[in-house]
Amino acid sequence: MLALSSVSAAYGSFQALFSVSLEIKRGEAVGVIGPNGAGKTTLMRVISGLIAAHEGTMTLEGRAITGLPAHQVVEQGIAHVPENRRLFPALSVEENLRIGAFIPSARARFSERLDWVYQLFPRLKERRAQLAGTMSGGEQQMCAIARALMSKPKVLLMDEPSAGLAPLVVAQVFELVRKIRAEGLTVLIVEQNVQQVLEVVDRAYLLEVGAIRLAGSAAELKQNSVIREAYMGL
């Protein structure tokens, strides 16, 4: 479905990714775990076109998406839930969702998508007229995910969906991820909360200092001693 082969990227003169390759199959949920500053967010931003890769290729369903600007990547079918949610705080919940459906293909079926998203997250329907910036962190994360879903993506990228949320809310967010998976979406999720993320993904990659160090199924990685010691504190 989504494949990266030997992708490298840099912020100015600081190289953040070194020849990263990974692959996600249709319907799969894949996690990328690793410490702060490992390049996880960079990886997401490279895929969605916010940062240009200076080496390597990326394909979605076999078609190259390397070098496309962000707004065209969305049209190809990749939606990105950014780190820290990044809702438009002074727009209402429904306006945020409308922005999520900005691309022509989604715009044409806006009300249908809206119904679907509201059915998935009934809470948002209650809050539809509220300004997004005034909601709780968990609700904002819900709204950010819903906004990404509005474009009817084939692949959903989620960057640290649990960051900055209270433990109880974190559990709810991972519940949301399960719900989305159940809808048949392909998901790539970046997390520092290793224990929880390994419960919801099929496979995961360990990213350290901009390179992939380990890869395996969630079950394998849960047993891996490196991961248990360094990332799960066991």
Binding site: S48, G49, L50, P69, A70, H71, V74, E75, A79, H80, P82, R86, F88, P89, A90, L91, E95, I99, G100, F102, I103, A106, R147, A148, S151
Partner: peptide, 14 residues
Amino acid sequence: RAIAQDREIVGLMG
């Protein structure tokens, strides 16, 4: 209105 609130992220909305 959205772009006035968050310039960087609007690309992700297409």
